[in-house]
């Protein structure tokens, strides 16, 4: 029987395909990843850590954390509520609502930023009213938060909607019939069922919130120490030829991306077994 089912010729195609996959992934994904750390460390460990002594680096890190700390919780609350009404009820206009939730994914980040510049910029009635009352939104932190909310808007809802639709309403209905209130039903029946999907949505939402560049770049004004988030500060450093410093800050975001990938694999593995 030996080799009848797998003669050496039938192994050529699989080997070629897997080899191509490895080469493609190595060239487009692994090399860029390694180069981030190599560029950050190529003048030594001391130079790497020196990059973080800069006060502007810290204010960029702080602004990124603050932005994510506002945008992510808001989008979690929205995502859970939207998924609840879409997955647990039948109503007119549901598919329109689902399409609208996906909208920010179809819009270029640059256009997302532009939209807020048009809404709150000095040229509009709203903008001049805000200016008269000394409220800054564009080229200030509120604009950055708004643009971040816009681009990270669908992540949690998109993870939860298919998951909750698949789970149906039987368990929740049983709980209500047994006398549980709405909050109890969500907390004790729904949440345990969706926790891994929810966690994954939050992780993706957070990664994008901390890493968003295009939309934030349009509304930020790039004021060092004030409106520079980490990705924007990386651009500032890179443009001023501080390559080591730029890549040093980039290692933090690259590490965040790696944590996101590992978390995703772990969650997928837990869902399977």
């Amino acid at each position: 029987m030996k080799n009848i089912s797998t003669p050496w010729t039938s192994r050529i195609v699989p080997t070629l395909l897997v080899g191509t996959t490895f080469l493609f992934v190595a060239f487009f994904l692994v090399l860029p990843l390694i180069s981030i750390f190599a560029e950050a460390l190529h003048k030594g460990v001391a130079a790497y850590f020196n990059s973080f002594k800069d006060q502007y680096a810290w204010s960029a890190i702080r602004l990124t954390l603050v932005t994510a700390a506002i945008a992510v919780p808001l989008n979690i609350v929205f995502g859970v509520m939207a998924a609840w009404c879409i997955a647990k009820f039948e109503f007119w206009g549901k598919s329109v609502l689902i399409t609208l939730i996906d909208l920010p994914f179809a819009i270029s980040p640059v256009i997302a930023g532009l939209v807020f510049v048009l809404a709150f910029g000095q040229r509009t009635a709203l903008g001049s009213w805000l200016l008269a009352h000394d409220i800054k939104i564009i080229y200030a932190v509120p604009g950055i938060v708004l643009a971040t909310i816009f681009v990270t808007f669908p992540f949690v809802a998109r993870e939860l909607i298919p998951l909750m639709q698949e789970q149906g309403t039987l368990e929740e209905e049983a709980a209500v019939t047994l006398g549980a209130g709405g909050w109890d039903v969500f907390w004790r029946v729904t949440l345990p069922n969706i926790k891994w999907g929810l966690l994954y949505g939050i992780i993706l939402c957070n990664a994008r919130a901390m890493g968003e560049f295009g939309a934030v770049s349009v509304v930020s004004g790039h004021i060092r120490g004030e409106t520079n988030t980490m990705p924007l500060y990386i651009e500032t450093l890179y443009a001023s030829y501080s390559t080591v410093a730029a890549f040093s800050i980039a290692t933090l975001l690259a590490a965040l991306a790696l944590v996101t990938l590992v978390a995703k694999s772990v969650i997928e593995w837990r869902e399977k077994y």
């Binding site: 730029a246 980039a250 975001l253 991306a257 990938l261 995703k264 694999s265």
Partner: peptide, 28 residues
């Protein structure tokens, strides 16, 4: 061998901030 690592890596362009990808690809 390495199938799960390759599978996880595929999502990297989603997870990596675009500015970081941009400077890394430029340096390469």
């Amino acid at each position: 061998f390495g199938r799960r690592v390759v599978d996880a890596l595929i999502d990297m362009p989603f997870a990596m901030p675009t500015a970081v990808s941009g400077i890394a690809l430029t340096a390469l």
